[in-house]
Simulated assay, not measured.
Amino acid sequence: MKQFDVVIIGAGIAGASIASEIGEDRSVLLLEAEDHPGYHSTGRSAAFWTESYGGPLVQPLTSASQSFLDNPPAAFSESAFLGPRGAVNIGRDDQQHLADQFLADFADSGLSMDRWSREQTISLVPDLKPIWEHAVYEPDCRDIDVAALHAAYLRDAKRKGVELVCRAPVSQIRKDDGGWELSAKGETYRATVLVNAAGAWADSVARLAGAKAIGIQPLIRNMVQIETDPPSSMDMPLVVGLDGSFYFKPEAGGGYWLSPHDEIPSEPADVAPDEMSVATAIDRFEKVVDVQVKRVSRKWAGLRSFAPDRLPVIGFDGAVENFFWFAGQGGFGIQTAPAAAKLARSVLLDQAPDESLQAVDASLYAASRFS
């Protein structure tokens, strides 16, 4: 029986990032049910970083992550994870109120946002149809190399002595006075602290450990990759509907990635793309830009898992000792990963927060709010 200070369940971006953060200070085991880490949500990201995504209460975590993503420590990565993109949030001629509300929501955030005229918008989105008159531009939106970031966290965790075991779904969790005992892959492990970073399976892990489920809901998000005539330009920004009904971005080779921004409730599972959602994504795209969709080159779906208030859950359970939640990271788990992991480290190890978290109110995300 192997003994660790901390066992983390789930090796997606959540589990990998917190393992990296605490690996030098604690002995850590990282358990992953799949053949390789990041198979579900992490590996199916739309790969953009924008500070407004997730709303005003998530934004501080996103903003606090930028410095790390732009200038990671040399031992962590030799290159940055962010690249130029920009985002334009657009509304139809009858949706000025949405642009007004969007700007008002972030008025005190310090984010760089500019109300754009139609002429400014079509300078970057030249095929935009005439009905789209209102726009808010976010110059600081970036592309993010999700695979490189996730791999860097796993590599850094390994360097710090974290042990990763894949193909190891946890079948049993038992708590006693000495801590936690877990059965996985025919092995038994013991740990003082159990970290629940299981994403869509977070409530299932909680119930297995005797903790109360808090209502983490997996939602399916469909993505489509298309080829068009004319092709896209990589100079084009991320384009987001102010009404929340679509987003799309160019991809290398002249195509687009697009999504109907859907949220279809699901059980935790390996989800597949839904044909109706794919058709909806293409239909909404064609209502925005005057281009011909030649073919669908790829389609996929992933799970985005939210707590009832749609904020991350970071901290010790209010009722079960040494059960630590690191879940509910929705669709913003990649872009908030550095700050969220640093916050989790400070709470788990009872340390002062990192300087990068000065604008972050940790109480908003505390797991004890569900006790």
Rank of each mutant, 00 (worst) to 15 (best):
V6L: 13
V7E: 08
I8Q: 07
I13H: 03
A14K: 01
I22M: 11
E24L: 14
L29K: 03
A33I: 01
E34D: 09
R44T: 01
L57F: 13
S65L: 05
S67V: 09
A75D: 09
E78L: 12
S79I: 06
G91I: 08
R92D: 02
Q96H: 08
Q96P: 00
H97I: 08
D100H: 03
R115E: 12
E119M: 12
I122Q: 11
I122F: 03
E138H: 10
E138D: 10
D140K: 10
D145Q: 14
D145L: 12
A157H: 04
V165L: 08
R174C: 09
D176N: 14
E187P: 01
E187V: 01
L194S: 08
N196G: 06
A198H: 03
A200L: 02
W201G: 08
G210Y: 07
I220S: 06
M234S: 12
M234A: 13
D235Q: 14
P237I: 10
G241H: 15
D243N: 15
S245A: 14
S245P: 01
F246Q: 11
F248M: 09
P260W: 13
E263G: 09
P268K: 06
A269I: 02
V271N: 03
A279K: 15
T280A: 12
A281Q: 07
I282P: 05
D283E: 13
V288W: 12
R295T: 12
S297G: 15
K299Q: 15
W300A: 13
A301F: 00
R310Y: 05
I314Y: 06
I314E: 06
F323C: 03
W325V: 05
F326W: 11
G328W: 02
G330E: 00
I334F: 01
A339F: 11
S346F: 06
A359H: 15
R369G: 05
S371R: 10
